[in-house]
Design a protein around this nucleic acid. Sequence first.
DNA 1: GGGGGCCATACCGAAACAGCATTGGACGCC
DNA 2: GGCGTCCAATGCTGTTTCGGTATGGCCCCC
Lengths: 95, 95
Amino acid sequence: MRRVSLTHIQSFVAVAEECNVGRAARRLHLTQPPLTRHIQALEDELGAPLFERTRTGMRLLPTGEAFLLHARRILAEVDAAMLTVRDVAGTRSGG
Amino acid sequence: MRRVSLTHIQSFVAVAEECNVGRAARRLHLTQPPLTRHIQALEDELGAPLFERTRTGMRLLPTGEAFLLHARRILAEVDAAMLTVRDVAGTRSGG
DNA sequence: GGGGGCCATACCGAAACAGCATTGGACGCC
DNA sequence: GGCGTCCAATGCTGTTTCGGTATGGCCCCC
């Protein structure tokens, strides 16, 4: 079964954009440890590391760069799905 | 935060295709009650029902039809993301 | 009116999760 | 070379989430 979760993907995008787990955690209203574990779980599930751990934070590896493109599309598609449903529901119930 | 999960989406697609919670549950190697709750949670999160409950099972409402298109795309994108990462990782480590 | 199919609900034990506290590594400073 | 700092990683714990079992309500068929 699909063990990857949207939360993990969201966490990944935040870390990729911040290059720093702590900052990403604040952005997500989360603390650092669970966020570290999200990334670990994702890497574990994909069978490949996504980041290089540097002294100053996290840097995307080529695998991470590739995943980031898909990750953004997934999140965008989820948003679109929710908007579409609300739109259809509103159109029919609201007139 | 995003409360919709990939599990919910997967459950939705299965029920939509089977028009029957019990059969969808078997397909997902799950039992019927949690699957019923997945659908309920999804409908609750989206703020609109997705299925019409009939005597013989479940029938998609227009909202459900609209969501189904996005749902399939989301799952396909997740699959593509995993394949891409494995491909990039394999290319770099394997030669 | 007993039997079988359907989805929904109550309840419970197990697994997952977030947060706190702490560890461990790398660097800059004095 | 010891010390403070900044980072990610880990041990532990309380809580929440989640799936399974058992059951209920509804309708059709015989």
